[in-house]
């Protein structure tokens, strides 16, 4: 996922002007700088998972993984988002969110955009309507119509019926989470479309368990770079943290309550010597399957093959496939 930091464009400024006509106390933010993604509020956790390959987690050398290994991935999917606080009304943040997602297909070793589903770019204005009493429903409709952007209320009650705090930072966090959610929806729609066509294996930047159809598709492979949640505990944690380059963990099942269950394993892409324990460590997700060891080895070889060319200068280059970087660069260009 790409977080872009560019300033407001002409369309954003036009949207702010529309709001200013209806909110006299609205104060535009100079430059309208993008907001960094919020620090995860969920604490890092260890979660147990069902081992499905053997009886305990162990390190497995991926056989046949070398520089000459050919990758079976035919495409890459990633999304991007941009969150800009463009104004505030007596402290209430007015946010414009831009989300985008694209599938980039590899043809003759070069990346091009998937022809069947064009890349998606969507924009929305995130307003805490509850705390902007002067803005009527008619005003909201007018702004939405004139800007042709969706208006998202960031001050709705949660599932417990409680309204969010009026604290501007809290409201901004809500807006950012809403943008996150919108981006994930875009990514999911593209992944579903890809899997529905049964095309070549798709390298998805992130997990695949959000939608059932993708989670069960043999052509969707998720590669997760962040490890706020580790699906190993105890001795198994030490084994995973000690994986050498080209080694994977045993396969385990990840079955979140609200999501589909998938098979997963850890894979070390680069030698961690001299780096932190997470250096070059990714977690791979695939759909449930038989002969899971063979599947894990094959997919691991593919993921390892994607470590060249390097995705530098991206700071996550130790874990990021070049195809994913290509997606991000593409989305940066179009959104």
């Amino acid at each position: 996922m790409l977080v872009s930091n560019s300033g407001p464009d002409a369309a954003s400024r036009a949207a702010v002007r529309l709001l200013m006509q209806r909110l006299p106390s609205l104060s535009p933010v100079e430059g309208g700088a993008s907001v960094e993604p919020i620090a995860p509020t969920d604490p890092p956790i260890l979660r147990s998972a069902q081992i499905v390959e053997g009886s305990a987690v162990r390190a497995v050398k991926v056989p046949g993984a070398s520089g000459a290994t050919t990758s079976g991935f035919g495409a890459f999917l990633d999304g991007a988002q941009k969150v800009q606080v463009v104004a505030h009304d007596r402290g209430m943040p007015i946010v414009i969110g831009t989300v985008s997602a694209a599938v980039r297909v590899r043809v003759d070793r070069r990346m091009i955009t998937w022809g069947h589903q064009p890349p998606r770019v969507e924009r929305a204005i995130y307003l805490p309507l509850r705390y902007l009493p002067t803005l009527t429903a008619a005003d909201v409709s007018t702004v939405a119509a004139q800007s042709r952007w969706r208006i998202v209320d960031t001050s709705t009650a949660d599932k417990n019926g409680e309204y969010p705090s009026q604290h501007p930072a809290f409201l901004l966090d809500r807006a950012i989470r809403a943008v996150d959610q919108q981006r994930e929806e875009l990514e999911d729609r593209l992944a579903e479309a890809w899997c529905a066509r049964g095309e070549a294996p798709l390298f998805i930047d992130g997990g695949i368990s959000r939608t059932t159809s993708v989670a069960s598709s043999t052509c969707a492979i998720g590669v997760i770079k962040s490890h706020r949640t580790l699906y190993v505990q105890g001795e198994a944690l030490g084994i995973v943290m000690s994986l050498r380059k080209g080694e994977r963990s045993s396969v385990f099942r990840v079955a979140p309550r609200s999501r589909s269950s998938v098979l997963s394993w850890y894979l070390r892409l680069r030698a961690p010597d001299g780096h932190d324990a997470m250096w070059g460590l990714v977690r791979v997700e695939v759909a449930e399957c038989d002969r899971l060891s063979e599947r894990a080895e094959e997919i691991s070889r593919w993921v390892l093959a994607e470590t060249t060319p390097l995705s530098l200068p991206d700071g996550r280059w130790d874990k990021m496939a070049y195809g994913v970087r290509d997606c991000e660069e593409f989305l940066r260009a179009i959104s």
Partner: peptide, 26 residues
């Protein structure tokens, strides 16, 4: 590519390895 060094690192300093890369750089 931002630095030629990145390409060297990416192919372990072996030009022959470059031919095996799954993807050509943009």
């Amino acid at each position: 590519l931002q630095s030629p060094m990145h390409d060297v690192l990416g192919h372990d300093g072996l030009p022959t390895m470059a031919g095996y890369a799954s993807t050509e750089r943009a």
